[in-house]
């Protein structure tokens, strides 16, 4: 399991307007492309310096492909990164202000009385 790589995915998608739309429209294709082409890119470095060891496990890949932010929360993806990216993708679909944010909280309600998942990387 690699919480770091989950966070790296969320971070690198969220900061790029084109990738936010691509991940919204084609999650499976974007996750597949990102894991092949971007997961091992050392940020700010030439691709000749890529890392060699980073990959998702099956559950992580499935959660990202499903846009399953509850599962990402349970896995310990950084909640700020997850929230920010999913607001960018889904807030537009809700008529009421904070409609998506409140649904997000509701979907996590089973965690309300439980300790937070470990987010250390």
């Amino acid at each position: 399991m690699s919480r770091y790589l989950l966070d790296k995915f969320l971070y690198t998608i969220d900061r790029d307007p084109e990738l936010v739309e691509r991940y919204r429209d084609d999650p499976a294709g974007t996750v597949d492309w990102w894991e092949r082409e971007r997961a091992n890119v050392l940020l700010n470095c030439h691709v000749g310096e890529n890392s060699t060891w980073l990959k998702f496990d099956d559950a992580e890949r499935a959660a990202l492909v499903a846009h399953d932010y509850v599962k990402l929360y349970e896995m310990g993806a950084h909640p700020f990164l997850t929230l920010t990216l999913f607001i960018a993708m889904y807030e537009r679909d809700f008529a009421e202000p904070l409609g998506f944010q409140l649904e997000y909280a509701q979907k996590l309600s089973a965690w309300r009385e439980k300790p937070y998942p470990d987010i250390t990387t």
């Binding site: 929360y73 950084h78 909640p79 700020f80 990164l81 997850t82 929230l83 904070l98 944010q101 409140l102 997000y104 909280a105 996590l108 309600s109 089973a110 965690w111 309300r112 937070y116």
Partner: peptide, 9 residues
């Protein structure tokens, strides 16, 4: 709370 069950209350 950000990205958790108690957010945006």
């Amino acid at each position: 709370e950000l990205g958790g069950p108690r957010q945006f209350g």
